[in-house]
Nucleic acid binder design. Structure first.
Lengths: 148, 148
DNA sequence: TATTGTTATACTCTATAACTATA
DNA sequence: TATAGTTATAGAGTATAACAATA
């Protein structure tokens, strides 16, 4: 459908009062920007966060990523495998835990992360043109009080 | 996995700076509260918003719902059908457009919406206990500047 | 010609159960 | 006994193409 029906007279205040609705809709807007801009790099939101966390925390494990990003480990396996196949990350034996593998960025992974970070920043800014820098910082702080 | 690895030493600031990350994570927290609390009522987030919008805007069409909620119409068909099968909403011919059907709440639908609204409010509050009433209002306002 | 609503279908994301190897 | 990582699988959410009826 190519919807063009008139919605001007519809009262939406009843759902916009909910933070669950506002966070979801705002998330989808930025998510859409992100997907579109990051498509040429072959990165999706979770893949980007994995690259970013690995870049800042060399040797991080899949288990730690799952805890921080609230992922189920079976869903991370394939993603890590893809990043490894693309030679963006390496898996090395964990120095003290024989069960675990430490993740590290390759040179190519670090280069891609730099490009991706700029695009992620652009996706953020595209969605928040109506916000002042102060408001953006306030928004990030209030959101962290919910998920942190 | 039952992750309990130590994440205290992990630097997460690099991703928490992004509004895309913050909105997504906050959305997932409230979403989880919502799903858990709303399960006994058999309502999911989108189903709730459809009931709420229909309750406040009797005669609203599927096309209008799709525009407001940013849904693809094929994905709304089954949901409306379910709500209709549960006798929560009725579809009546649109007064001026022979193609469209106007949606209306039944008495049971209005009763369920009342219960669901209270649970949705509880899901919001459970997630925002660290926010003052002022901060919650500010958060809703800033989010609306992104998705509105 | 465009829009409403529909069916069928595919793709992504997420969740659960069960397994191994190691702690 | 518990955790790290893996496999297989199922469910939910979302997307596109194509269609009939009406504007």
């Amino acid at each position: 459908m190519h919807a063009r029906s008139d919605t001007a007279a519809i009262d939406t205040a009843v759902i916009e009062a909910f933070l669950g609705y506002g966070t979801r809709r705002a998330s989808e807007v930025i998510h859409g920007n992100f997907i579109r801009r990051m498509a040429p790099l072959g990165l999706r939101p979770v893949g980007f966060t994995v690259l970013a966390l690995t870049g800042r925390n060399p040797g991080i494990t899949a288990s730690q990523l799952c805890q921080i990003l609230d992922l189920q480990s079976p869903n991370l396996v394939g993603l890590v495998k893809q990043l490894q196949d693309r030679a963006l990350i390496e898996r090395r034996p964990h120095p003290t835990d024989g069960r675990a593998m430490g993740l590290h960025l390759t040179v190519g992974g670090r280069q891609l992360l730099e490009q991706a970070s700029a695009l992620a920043q652009a996706a953020d800014e595209e969605a928040s043109t109506l916000l002042t820098p102060d408001e953006r910082q306030t928004l990030a702080r209030l959101l962290h009080k919910i998920y942190g």
